Computed example of a mutant assay.
Amino acid sequence: MTKLQKMTAIGILAAISMILYFFKVPLPFFPIFLTLDVSDVPALIAAITMGPIAGVMVQLLKNILEYLSHGSYVGLPINQIANFLSGALIVGLIGGLYHYQKKLNWKSYALSITVFLTAMFFLNYYFILPTIMNLLGLNMNQYLTSFTEANPFVTDFRTAVLFVIIPFNLIKILFVYSVGLPFSFKLQRILQKRRLIA
């Protein structure tokens, strides 16, 4: 695949990803603002077929286009930044492991999921959620209301991240892997047969 073909493919996958981002499904037992979508799948395809950097680029372009098109409910693009960080970790980790090892096994999945959940705990605890709370002008008690309504085990900010955000992110990465990886590997085999990729 030439550099031009790769750049074109990244652009097309980013556009598809942004369209898929509109179709969000709320989950029972979670706050209404936590939804699942398949917009990470095109980035996962890029990460498997073209490398982890290509996958991260699809995530970056998707969120830039999304912000330019629809803005953010808190003004600054914190929700797009959060989506980018989450998506880039998902596709970058598994894409990096796949291209380094030339295969994936249970250790690859366990490592990528563990690193992803650990990173998302710290990112949400120290950066994403506090920033959203401050931009919305809410105090801690007001902000925790949606979390405590969804999960009775939430008693403070730490447990909100631990018992709501982390389980959601676990569901998210398992969902993206189960939907995106089989399709990515099938597409990769097709491209290899046509000698479009190595």
Rank of each mutant, 00 (worst) to 15 (best):
I197A: 05
Y109K: 06
F175V: 10
T159H: 07
V176A: 08
V58W: 01
S72P: 10
S108K: 14
V41L: 09
G51R: 06
F185T: 11
N83Y: 07
V91A: 02
I132H: 00
I190R: 12
K102W: 11
A46W: 00
I32M: 12
I132C: 01
G71H: 01
L4E: 03
F147Y: 15
Q142P: 01
N105R: 13
V74A: 03
N151C: 10
L76V: 13
A119W: 10
K102V: 09
T2M: 07
R189G: 14
I90Q: 08
N63M: 04
K103Q: 15
P52C: 01
A88Y: 11
G71R: 01
T131W: 08
G51S: 08
M140R: 03
A46D: 03
A150V: 00
N141T: 11
G95L: 09
T155A: 09
I113R: 04
K193F: 14
L174C: 13
L85H: 02
L61T: 04
F183P: 04
K62V: 07
T114R: 03
M140I: 11
I12Y: 04
M18L: 12
L187I: 05
P152H: 07
A9E: 10
P31K: 03
I16L: 12
F29R: 04
A110D: 13
I132P: 04
F153Y: 13
V115Y: 02
Q59I: 04
F168G: 00
A150E: 03
Y67T: 00
P26F: 07
A110C: 10
Y73G: 06
F185G: 11
V25N: 03
T148L: 02
S146V: 12
F84P: 11
T8F: 14
F183V: 15
F153G: 05
E66S: 14
N139L: 02
I81K: 09
N141D: 12
L123R: 03
R189F: 03
F163W: 13
V58D: 01
I12E: 02
N83H: 10
A82T: 02
F157M: 13
T159C: 08
K193Q: 15
Q192C: 04
Y109F: 15
S146L: 10
R195P: 06
P182W: 08
T155R: 12
H70A: 13
I48E: 03
F29T: 07
F157W: 12
V164T: 04
G87Q: 08
Y98R: 11
I53D: 00
G95E: 06
V179L: 11
P167F: 09
Q192A: 13
L4D: 03
G11Y: 09
L174M: 10
Y177V: 05
P26L: 09
M133Q: 15
F163C: 05
P52V: 03
M133A: 07
G51K: 05
